[in-house]
Write a protein that binds this DNA or RNA. Structure first.
Lengths: 144, 144
DNA sequence: TATTGTTATACTCTATAACTATA
DNA sequence: TATAGTTATAGAGTATAACAATA
């Protein structure tokens, strides 16, 4: 018999290992978590005002200033004046930034294949449903 | 049909929500992640030398000095001289620290029940096996 | 000579508050 | 008067290197 506590401990182990794998990717590319997150966001959404990045990353506008500073210095992003609002700046990926995001997406796909590629079709639906149920229960806890 | 990428995204969502729930607990108790980790470790292992805590938490000895400083100031732990090695210090939980760890363990059990309490017996074994398989694949990736 | 823990220094994450330029 | 981004300041996580006391 598998207890609830044993299941939670297994899930937490998977969580820890996922974080380690992410950290390994970041070290290899000499970028930190928030920087990669910002680049990923830019890849998904395209060029945006700096202010729009703050809620998307869950950090303050002040922090975005520093992150963008460093990513500009690293050649990953570019700051341009906003076409109609002279207070605002628009951040977009440079060609090097585009290449990094493509590599990030490829790496994400590869991880998905390594982790779930062997799961048989008949099990995939049940597994997805179980993960959805976990997410739903956790959402309740987090927002309450 | 559920793709590998969809399964990975669901798993990552669960991971993110678990981290948020953990952060909520830490905020409520006005402690940070590494401090809670150190207290949990002390609850599991009993009194230990500071040096033994560094590899257990995956940080440098220098960082342990600061964490223990703050936990002593907060009344959670105590530093005593090592009985036979005058270079070393032994860290142990105070009564307040013991109470916190008991609350932490209770909270962990409660979360396990909330997340997995409804999973029927017949599904528990399969779920545990799937999580073990994920952990095994991730371990290979992380250590390679 | 090696080990334990601390001091010194530095970079990053993250937050709040005050400020400048613009709307 | 409100908004976009920056400067100023601060606490915490984390690392390396140098050092004192002890083994």
């Amino acid at each position: 018999m598998t207890t609830s506590a044993e299941l939670l401990d297994r899930l937490l182990l998977v969580t820890r290992l996922l974080a380690e794998d992410t950290a390994r990717f970041e070290r290899e590319h000499d970028l930190t978590g928030p920087r990669v997150h910002l680049l990923w966001q830019l890849g998904e959404e395209g060029p945006v005002r700096q202010g729009a990045l703050a809620p998307a990353l869950g950090v303050t506008p002040r922090h975005i200033t520093g992150l963008v500073d460093d990513l500009v210095a690293g050649g990953y992003v570019r700051r341009d004046p906003h076409p109609s609002d002279r207070r605002a700046l628009v951040v977009s990926l440079t060609p090097a930034g585009e290449r990094f995001v493509a590599e990030l997406q490829r790496s994400h796909e590869e991880l998905a294949g390594q982790l779930f590629g062997e799961v048989p079709s008949v099990r995939r639906g049940a597994l997805a449903a179980e993960l959805d149920a976990l997410a739903a229960r956790l959402s309740e806890l987090v927002t309450s």
